[in-house]
Design a protein around this nucleic acid. Structure first.
Lengths: 340, 340
DNA sequence: CTGAAAGCGCTAACAA
DNA sequence: TTGTTAGCGCTTTCAG
């Protein structure tokens, strides 16, 4: 009579066991390959499985086993090649470990970040890799269940116990600016977005270090949000105010926006104004002139983070001390900075 | 006595109910906001929840409710801005619908694609959006459980019943080539990668259409895999063989590789050889000369796909007919094609 | 080597 | 308005 729900019933392990003429538990055993089952029985069960087109329900498995075999990843902006590459690398490592990755994105907002993390936790993820928003209001440590492995990317979380993967932002910026100064530019201006972010702040500090060392007055132009970096802002606050002899942009987004602004007002990058970008990207070598840049190892960010995460997941709480890996950056000298 | 497992116990709805002095079901009711519960009871339960720091276990929820509130997405290559933007858009729509997205990537390989889909299905996803590998061996239709909403992106799956979001590749390519021909170039060569892919094949067809119409002999250069598009290949098979008066690249990857090859052999894009790219990208407008391109609405791909998917998920099987949305492309005329 | 029975945390009939 | 009783599909003691 009641067709109702049963119509949509999917084959379960019980069905398999039934068909194979064994008990549920035995079927479970061959599914997991645990303990020893007679070869013949295994064959029977395997046969039943394929014959029925059985697919284990990972949700049920996870519920019982108290692990989801899933990790979460939250990034700020997937359109940014930095994030995209990191996600790609994490996904690959996860796959190699038999894990899936649940992807979330914060858009750079602390409250969304928090909500996404909550959601991920509700999903019983076994680990989390996160590229934190890093704004002052971004404090998610408290909502992380104790024992959940977390590794941060790009930015640390102040005073946290999470593992982290970073570069030396300050030093990298300093080296880049020092290079610019070897070309004897005096009025070198640094352009940054969201100066309250750790990475931006560090890079600014590095810029200052380099300028101070040469006893040149620092010229720093920052906007609170990318939407504010308009052509008008650029021409007023950078061009008119500083009449720069060289420019260093402190992030991918600021580079893109600055290049666009320069084009709009007819200033040629690297020719009229020497230029260096913190963050390298596909095509930087194909621009005219080619863009000099500080290259971050974007894929390594992801794979290192994932590696740390899975080590911790594997250690099952036995790994106590916090780990921090520092990745090397590379100053790629092309044409725009004045070399060549 | 037995502390054992209990140590790691997380607070469940039972605990909440207990603390609030109500039954499990009542607690469940306020959690889900279903049916009417007395305001005072609601308050009590809510209070208990926050006091206990309760977090619902979505795995358990999904197991019972037979839905995971998760969708899967599989793309070919996250590093490609096309994929990255599509994923981003899908993720946003999913979030707005209260769904999470499990991300997988095929790397362009049919067998990985298949495995990832299997894994996703085991995860009880409620829907799938996929940018199919599209090679002849990519036939995953059979492993999709009946009733699982699927929408394909970029490429269709031959003979499938899935909803799809596409552009008119053939027509877009034709229009682009026709534009090139208005500049009176005769020896226009098309460069493509993986010609067996639907999108590539269609674009080649469009190229042929345009050439045929003007009674010009088509010149098509394709490689089976991106690794084969080397500088040497380019100079032999494109330059020497055809001495092109203009080049159109049929995808983002081929554009990048071709630009790089041209740079290596000292040919200036757009100056020595007029150039047009199928696929626009960030920075195309900042190259010198700026690159003319066929622009695909990358974000719309994702958001439209997600929209279709959630409509179908919402319809709960009542939506029978297959839908196909065709997105508009835009021919962005900049400098490299010879305009200006 | 195999099986019976007890849940994982939650939702859903069906009463009360 | 609220509680009782079953399970979802699987793993896991603990016996046989």
């Amino acid at each position: 009579m009641a067709i109702s729900k049963k119509t949509h019933k999917s084959i379960t392990l019980v069905d398999v066991a039934h068909k194979a003429g064994v008990s549920l538990k035995t079927a479970s055993r061959v599914l997991n390959g645990t303990s020893t089952v007679k070869a013949k029985t295994v064959a029977k069960v395997r046969d039943a499985m394929t014959r029925l087109g059985y697919r284990p329900n990972e949700l049920a498995r996870g519920l019982k086993a108290r692990k989801s075999v899933a990790i979460g990843m939250v990034v700020k902006n997937l359109a940014d090649p930095f994030s995209a590459n990191a996600v790609k690398a994490v996904q690959e490592v996860a796959r190699a470990n038999g894990y899936i990755v649940i992807l979330a994105s914060s858009g750079g907002y602390a409250d969304i970040e928090r909500a996404e993390i909550e959601s991920l936790i509700g999903r019983q993820i076994d680990g989390l890799v996160i590229s934190p928003v890093g704004s002052p209001r971004s404090t998610f440590s408290e909502i992380i269940p104790s024992g959940l492995p977390v590794v941060t990317l790009d930015q640390p979380v102040q005073g946290s116990v999470f593992d982290s993967v970073m570069i030396d932002n300050r030093r990298s910026a300093k080296v880049a600016v020092q290079h610019l100064l070897t070309h004897n530019y005096q009025r070198v201006v640094a352009i940054g977005i969201r100066p309250y972010l750790y990475t931006c702040a560090e890079r600014i500090a590095g810029y200052r270090d380099a300028m101070r060392k040469e006893r040149i007055e620092p010229r720093i132009c920052v906007v609170e949000h990318e939407d504010l970096l308009t052509t008008q802002w650029f021409s007023e606050n950078v061009m008119n105010r500083h009449r720069p002899e060289a420019i260093i942009c402190l992030s991918w987004v600021s580079t893109i926006l600055t290049l666009r602004a320069m084009k709009t007002i007819g200033k040629r990058v690297g020719k009229d104004i020497p230029f260096l970008s913190f963050d390298d990207f596909e095509l930087a070598d194909l621009m005219t002139p080619s863009l000099s840049a500080v290259r971050q190892p974007t894929s390594a960010f992801g794979s290192e983070a994932a590696k740390l995460l899975f080590e911790r997941i594997g250690a099952d709480g036995k790994l106590k001390r916090q780990r921090a890996v520092l990745l090397e950056t590379e100053l790629i000298l092309r044409e725009s900075c004045g070399c060549v």
